[in-house]
Write a protein that binds this DNA or RNA. Structure first.
Lengths: 231, 231
DNA sequence: CGCTTGATCTCGACT
DNA sequence: AGTCGAGGTCAAGCG
């Protein structure tokens, strides 16, 4: 389990699902224990300029460049795919190896699942008088996030998203279409709940008679019993 | 323009759109010139365990930990958002800085745009006798990738994807619905073209009367005039 | 500047 | 193994 950090002037060619080329320049190369390679420049975001995903293997060789000069070349080949990454090195500025050990991993809080849980506990936040029938209500085409009833006993299907986009409305539409075929349930209304709803999604929902509700996660969390939470 | 590479035993807390925590362990920290930070473990893919996107600023301070020992703590704050990344360092194994300069950037070939261009030049590949009316045919809900006519003069709307999935079929369905309301165009048929089509997408397309066509990018590229291409 | 769409998406969960 | 949905998605292109 060793990570290798290299800073080098290099030129890179990738061939796989697409073809890509990086001209000669100085970059950071990170080689992980599984042979995977990350090519970073100074800037951009967390995404490398180029990379090779594991499982893969790295081979080092010396080749002659156009000028007849001996150069180091790394060839990284995907173990399962036919992806290849060729790194031609002109000059190495830094080269070090480090033992890291196994990482205990990341603990997360605040994703869609938590939003759904909170709304299941406080359905009245979506609409006054709304009560939960069940979470993950099963249908033939997948589970509805929240199945509820309003104060008049009318069924309400709720689709929960962190960010409400057009395909979330399509999804809820398919559920409503199916649920409304069931005479024991029909009529079923729809609520599209999200922390943020895109304009196009809002328009499409309106067109389909679906109510859009923007949810305040922090406010909901405030209502929640803090002893239940991880943080 | 300096990149800083640090290998350190550290513990990390992130608070922003979600909350995340990394227990104490040895990791690679990459600090770019814009203050952005990447936290990598040995393994995983190109995505860091945790990170901070630019624009942001890093501050170094000494704090006392639970045992009363002096520790280095980095606090990275987003310039526009209220995201914060707190890195508590127990031990530094490596620390170096490197001048990289500006990267010339990545040249790509083989993405959806190229596939659409090639199909626009060779519509007969999708169906014998098909001819192009126009690329990016405008509608009220967005442009149709390719608008064509078959050998009988019937309109055919083509949606091009690199990988054909269910939402691509939904997209084409919306276009067809709209286009078929236009008496000058109707009836309009649909072709869903991709290098790879997922089974569920294929089923949904079949259900909607949409033809699925798997496209061979390399074969198409072979037909194409190589002098037009970048590579 | 905001919005929409593609991505060598990655990653996890579930069948 | 394949499929599906979420993401602190990121990043490019367009209005």
């Amino acid at each position: 389990m060793l990570v290798r950090l290299v800073v080098a002037r290099c030129q890179i060619d990738y061939a796989g699902r697409l073809t890509a080329h990086l001209p000669m320049a100085t970059r950071v190369l990170m080689i992980k224990a599984d042979g995977s390679v990350l090519v970073h420049s100074d800037g951009g975001s967390y995404k490398p300029l180029n990379w090779m995903s594991p499982p893969c293997s790295l081979k080092e060789a010396t080749v002659l460049d156009e000028g007849g000069v001996e150069r180091i070349e790394w060839t990284v080949c995907g173990a399962k795919s036919d992806d290849t990454l060729r790194i031609l090195i002109e000059e190495i500025h830094h080269d070090s190896r480090h033992e890291l050990g196994i990482d205990p991993g990341l603990q997360k809080d605040g994703v869609e699942k938590h939003l759904q849980e909170l709304l299941a506990e406080h359905p009245g936040h979506l609409m006054p008088g709304l009560s939960l029938v069940r979470r993950e209500y099963p249908t033939a085409i997948g589970p509805v996030d929240l199945m509820c009833r309003d104060q008049d006993g009318v069924s309400v299907a709720v689709e929960v998203k962190r960010r409400g986009e057009i395909d979330g409305v399509e999804q809820l539409t398919r559920y409503l279409e199916l649920l409304n075929r069931d005479p024991l349930l029909a009529p079923v209304r729809g609520i599209f709940a999200a922390q943020e709803i895109r304009p196009q999604a809002r328009v499409l929902a309106g067109d389909r008679g679906i109510t859009c509700t923007v949810v305040d996660y922090d406010a909901l969390r405030g209502l929640d019993d803090p002893t239940d939470r991880l943080f």
